[in-house]
Design a protein around this nucleic acid. Structure first.
Lengths: 332, 332
DNA sequence: CGGCAAATTGGTAGCGCTGCCAAAAAAACC
DNA sequence: GGTTTTTTTGGCAGCGCTACCAATTTGCCG
């Protein structure tokens, strides 16, 4: 069942073919230590002649640290995590690190299991989304001794390194913006908040801010399952069916908000005069809609880049706040 | 610089603590070979007590095959490849395989370099997009002896396993559909085709089909860079500025098509009576727009699933055609 | 209870590489 | 030319595990 590799040229064979010692080949290939130019040529020639591909498994086992970075992410359905991976992978590739990933589906138990499986590869770092993890996960990561990077959420205690921004602040600023614009009868359409704790934090601080300004949330509609454009559209439809006099709706993210926007377009609800729409994430698509979406742009790619940078430079524990940008747009 | 792991509990220490031999611990943990229930308990207890995490690097080196699967993908910006990864990762996780990835940015040279780097991890399989690769890549993959899976394109010779569908057929059916609907003055808006060869194949067979039916492509607009909603919007704007009497436009994919759709909404161009729009990919968002997007839905998640399935079962070389589905929608 | 098969267990040789050390070669110096 | 230094090299012991084999224990039967 397991695959058996065939063309297994080893370092020893290269050494033999080049007429030098194994350690010399190793030094040449890693460009580490000293060797003469002549030796280098002979080794390179032998490598090419034999089609030698170094075995990083063996190399990693023999040396102390690995160049693997493990990502344990909640989802790949939404562009958020691919964006983070994209930012990170560029930096990692430059530094000859290798990215490994697995997907938790927003399930903390699965996160624990997958993190454990990752640790078995002895990665240089484990990157996780957010700062809420099971007790077991925390204990395991602490004990592992490998670097831990928590991404996209700064509202909590970091295990080691954290890169991202405050979701609470994002919720707060979204609310403040809508209030400043004069909206008072505000609703919310969101997806499953128990699983996506970051969306939950935005929602709760959004509500708190509204209350603090005497304009508490009028109504909300929570859809089971993941965020999607269709759920956003459906959610707004349901919300409006129940509540007739809303003047603005806050969505759990841009996907949901776009769905709401499309619902309004389809139903001829004037935006923002009749109803304002506000999202979260600042997806590119929101800039190309007939009316640019009002939202908060999050530094997803940069989060990945910085996180990777900190790992490859073995930076000390720290929390890096990359902030976010409120996009006024034209829908609120 | 490189990270030094601390809490390095080894199998030998577990064996000692449990008062059994190393091979017994190994057997218990892999649930492979035979051992008594009592022994199992003692081993498990020792593992928990010491917080032992098996070292898969060592395990992989010692055994013959690895459980790593390497993905060398062109991009993470577009949801296509995350979708494939998502499908694959679910299957791989179930089978205790580990996914590794790197991103080529549609650069064949980079693909070669990254594939080489991947091979150093001795993966069970390498998964690549499409079937066009440099000579060096092909030679290297052939020599590696590991499984090779080419994804999302069946128009070419497969190295080993191929999973996907025909992009040429997709282009052809798109053209046939537009012709059947009565459109005759058809244009195209696309992104960089030299890099995205699959989009190039769709485009060329689209054009051939139009010509074969006596309604050759009237005009096209190719934008440098990656596909995006904004580029689609810009592309259609430019195309219409040059060409006044088009009745339909084919886009390189749904992102681009949505951009075109938004342009029409913004400019008050009636769809599809004044101008028809046709995309490619069948993204979910296209179902939630005021008018559902006419497009071709591609089995991206299934491609990943099937590919992973074939790898974990070590299936013989084959090409699996998953086909695609034409969505009539309301924009064409 | 002896005797044989089956189940369980431990020992140990690698897997392919790196890191350390000592040996050899080359360069520099008086 | 003889040292001393510096550079270049090779040998080899692991890294932590698995695969194989042999040894031991257990179970079963007449």
């Amino acid at each position: 069942m397991e695959f058996k590799h065939q063309a297994t040229v080893t370092l020893a064979e290269v050494a033999e073919a080049a007429g030098v010692g194994e350690s010399t080949v190793s030094r040449v290939l890693r460009n580490h230590g000293s060797f003469s130019g002549k030796t280098r040529e002979r080794v390179i020639a032998a490598v090419e002649r034999l089609g030698y591909v170094p075995n990083r498994i063996a190399g990693t086992l023999a040396s102390t640290g690995s160049r693997l970075v493990a990502f344990v992410i909640p989802s790949l359905s939404n562009i958020v995590f691919p964006d983070v991976l994209r930012g990170a992978s560029a930096v990692l590739e430059e530094n000859r690190y290798q990215a490994v990933f697995s997907v938790t589906d927003y399930d903390p138990g699965k996160e624990e299991a997958l993190a454990a499986a990752m640790l078995a590869w002895r990665p240089a770092a484990v990157m996780l989304a957010g700062c809420e993890h099971t007790e077991g996960t925390v204990k395991m990561l602490r004990a592992s001794g490998c670097r831990v990077v928590e991404l996209l959420d700064l509202d909590g205690d970091a295990l080691d390194i954290a890169v991202g921004f405050s979701n609470r602040a994002a919720g707060r600023e979204s609310a403040a913006f809508l209030l400043k614009r004069g909206y008072r009868r505000i609703g919310y359409v969101g997806h499953d908040l128990n699983r996506d704790t970051r969306a939950g934090k935005r929602f709760s601080s959004f509500c708190e801010t509204l209350e603090a300004h005497g304009a508490p949330l009028v109504a909300h509609e929570i859809l089971a399952g993941a965020s999607s454009v269709e759920n956003g559209r459906l959610g707004l439809e349901r919300l409006l069916a129940r509540t007739t006099d809303l003047d603005a709706v806050y969505f759990s993210n841009d996907d949901m908000a776009l769905g709401g926007y499309f619902h309004c377009l389809a139903e001829g609800i004037a935006i923002p005069s009749k109803l304002a729409i506000f999202g979260y994430n600042g997806l590119d698509i929101g800039r190309a809609t007939p009316q640019p979406l009002s939202t908060i742009r999050t530094p997803r790619v940069a989060t990945g880049q910085i996180a990777a940078q900190l790992v490859v430079t073995n930076a000390p524990p720290q929390a890096v706040d990359l902030g976010f940008e409120l996009i006024e747009g034209a829908t609120a």
